[in-house]
């Protein structure tokens, strides 16, 4: 059969695109991470220096330690908030009702907004003088009146998390709703007939059945939280100080403010290694499932 060759021909264009646009730059970055290369000194790559960049990053760079800490805190809180809120909201939205369908219809909107625009909009709404959220917080909790959110290290990180949750929680709610719709009705009904309360049905039947979907939500959100970049630039600029500098933002600064390509590549690769590890885990989870592609 000609199919024997045709199938490779069919895959070739996409394979070349993926090779050229991701595998090649990954390889170049890896090689660069072992070299000394500062664009301020030389336009061509310098000598190989082994794993020195990795050693510096992991043992002797307070900026890296700070960015790793910020990214870890951001990711942990962000993932926990997203999974719990998306699950809760999806369970609320399961039933029929006018409010329910209106809410379901607007869930997709935040995700369609460019993350860069989300960041800059929240910067405006948390502005000290004319921020509407600043004013609301002050109106509800008098103690917060006049509080400058983006000038406080902890509050700035909270605002960053809030802006990210605004974009992601509604979207992940749609994902969980999809999972809920696919569950068979019988186990829940059987539990009710056996006299279980709604809370028991939820805890012992519904949520265990949803675990695979919740795992997908958690891993996807982890990946996107670890890559957090756009809103850091447009909302906080990494500040105040370095309190909201994520790893992706640190790579950007090393490469395009200090022009140290070698060190930037090494830090980028530490982040990449973490993400590839998560990717493998995620693939195993969804490829194992019957009916999953």
């Amino acid at each position: 059969m000609r199919d024997r060759w045709l199938k490779y021909v069919l895959i070739l264009p996409a394979a070349l695109l993926v090779m050229g646009t991701t595998i090649w730059p990954l390889g170049v970055s890896l090689v660069t991470s072992f070299r000394d290369w500062r664009l301020t000194r030389s336009l061509t790559p310098g000598p190989f220096i082994g794993v020195e960049h990795y050693l510096i990053a992991l043992t002797d760079d307070p900026d890296f330690a700070n960015a790793a800490k910020v990214t870890a805190i951001f990711t942990l809180v962000d993932v926990a908030v997203t999974v719990v809120s998306a699950l809760g909201l999806a369970l609320l939205l399961r039933r029929a009702g006018v409010l329910h369908s209106v809410t379901r219809a607007v869930l997709i909107l935040p995700f369609a907004v460019s993350p860069a625009l989300v960041g800059i909009s929240f910067r405006f709404m948390f502005n000290a003088e004319m921020g509407v959220f600043t004013w609301m917080a002050g109106a509800i909790i008098p103690w917060l009146k006049g509080f400058v959110w983006l000038a406080d290290p902890v509050a700035a990180l909270l605002v960053l998390m809030f802006s990210d949750a605004w974009r992601w929680v509604p979207y992940m709610t749609l994902v969980v709703l999809g999972g809920l719709a696919a569950l068979p009705k019988e186990p829940e009904e059987a539990a009710r007939i056996d006299g279980a309360t709604e809370w028991q049905v939820l805890r012992d039947v519904t949520i265990p059945a949803l675990l695979p979907v919740l795992a997908v939500v958690a891993i996807l959100k982890t990946v996107f939280a670890l890559k957090m970049f756009d809103q850091v630039v447009t909302l906080t600029g990494g500040g105040p100080g370095q309190s909201t500098v994520t790893l992706a933002h640190l790579v950007f600064s090393i490469a395009f403010r200090w022009y140290d390509m070698g060190y930037a590549s090494a830090v980028a690769w530490i982040l990449t290694a973490l993400l590839v590890f998560l990717a493998v885990w995620y693939m195993k989870l969804i490829l194992r499932k019957p009916g999953g592609h």
Partner: peptide, 30 residues
């Protein structure tokens, strides 16, 4: 539609590239 050697690995590689941070891709391209 087709079976082929290393199909799983190939498909897996294409999918896994989604997880790579954009910032590592952009350095060499820059």
């Amino acid at each position: 539609r087709f079976e082929m050697p290393f199909k799983g690995a190939l498909f897996f590689t294409i999918l896994a590239t989604q997880f790579i941070p954009a910032v590592v891709v952009v350095l060499p391209f820059y």
